[in-house]
């Protein structure tokens, strides 16, 4: 049976090899190495800090944050969960993972929010950005691990870079969406009073998009957490390493312990950032109020769920 390969075989893998090995690596290796300096610095700073702060203090701070933004239940969960992590002797690894996650999310925000804002202001930029984000989200992360290793080497920083690539899309998308969805008449009003582009951004667009941007940040955080194990494949430390080691030795107990640590951390961080988003979202107040008024006018009590509506 005929197949197109009989006619022509395309050496696609060779091309990629040539491109990466022959062009990118020799020419840009120094650039890439330099690019990871700020990431390494941030990571080391945070890791050092988290390892230095006594476990009880960190637990108390996280529990307080949970109490403020996510409610009593999550605060209690945070205390119990973190105690559990400490008792299974994974505290230092958990703090390394936390430092990695925060570093990754920080850089995602620093890159993603301005990019999202720019993309929201220019349709051209958005038509270019969008397919790139699609690729970033659909491409399996294993595919870019190899070039990352070649360009950046192995270690925690390359792991964070892989995490940044994987976790960046939602914050860009949702920042773009949030800014674009600011009501047209408010933009018109801001223009009618003679505001400049910056004034519009600070006074109107960012505050009104904040809720959506925070939702993007929350998604980015969750994606970053899901990369913890994969990043460990290229030498990142923390809980991911625990899981990987367990996997390598067929040590079910060790792998599970690492996994449980990640889950506990994920739940705490997810709930806190979600709560922050809602507290910051100006629309929440009015939305909540509208719903409450609605319920009130129907004669029944406002329900707890209304808090999370929207």
């Amino acid at each position: 049976m005929f197949s197109p390969a009989d006619l022509l075989v395309i050496p696609f893998d060779d091309w990629v090899n040539t491109f990466v090995r022959g062009f990118l690596v020799p020419n840009f290796r120094d650039v890439f190495r330099a690019a990871q300096v700020p990431i390494t610095a941030t990571l080391n700073g945070l890791d050092g800090l988290f390892q230095w702060i006594p476990m009880l203090v960190t637990t108390a701070l996280l529990a307080l944050a949970a109490l403020k933004w996510a409610g009593r239940g999550i605060a209690l969960f945070a205390v119990l969960g973190l105690f559990f992590i400490d008792m299974i002797e994974l505290w230092p690894e958990t703090m390394t993972t936390l430092a990695m996650i925060i570093t990754a999310v920080l850089f995602c925000a620093v890159i993603g929010v301005p990019l999202g804002i720019l993309a929201a202001r220019s349709n051209k930029l958005w038509t270019v950005t969008r397919p790139i984000l699609d690729i970033m989200q659909t491409i399996p992360s294993f595919v870019y691990l190899v070039p990352i290793v070649m360009l950046f080497g192995v270690g925690t920083t390359p792991g964070i870079i892989a995490t940044i690539i994987f976790a960046l899309p939602p914050i860009v998308r949702l920042t773009n969406l949030g800014i674009r969805n600011v009501r047209g008449d408010l933009i018109e009003a801001a223009n009618a009073f003679g505001s400049t582009g910056w004034q519009m951004l600070w006074d109107v667009q960012i505050p009104l998009a904040l809720r959506t941007i925070m939702a993007g940040l929350n998604q980015t955080l969750m994606l970053a957490l899901s990369m913890v194990v994969i990043a460990a494949l290229i030498g990142a430390g923390g809980l991911g390493l625990v899981v990987n080691t367990g996997l390598g030795r067929l040590d079910v107990g060790g792998a599970t312990a690492g996994g449980v640590g990640i889950v506990i951390l994920a739940i705490i961080l997810d709930r806190i950032t979600q709560g922050m988003g809602e507290a910051n979202g100006v629309n929440t107040v009015s939305l909540r109020q509208t719903l409450m008024n609605l319920f009130r006018s129907r004669g029944s009590q406002p329900e707890g769920e209304t808090k999370k509506a929207g």
Partner: peptide, 25 residues
């Protein structure tokens, strides 16, 4: 200056801050 059909007030600000918008600008 302009007054809009659907008010176009900034929901994240108080009434006074809204009224002061043009001056802020």
């Amino acid at each position: 200056t302009m007054v809009f059909q659907h008010f176009a007030l900034f929901p994240h600000w108080t009434v006074a801050e809204n009224a002061a918008y043009g001056l802020k600008i």
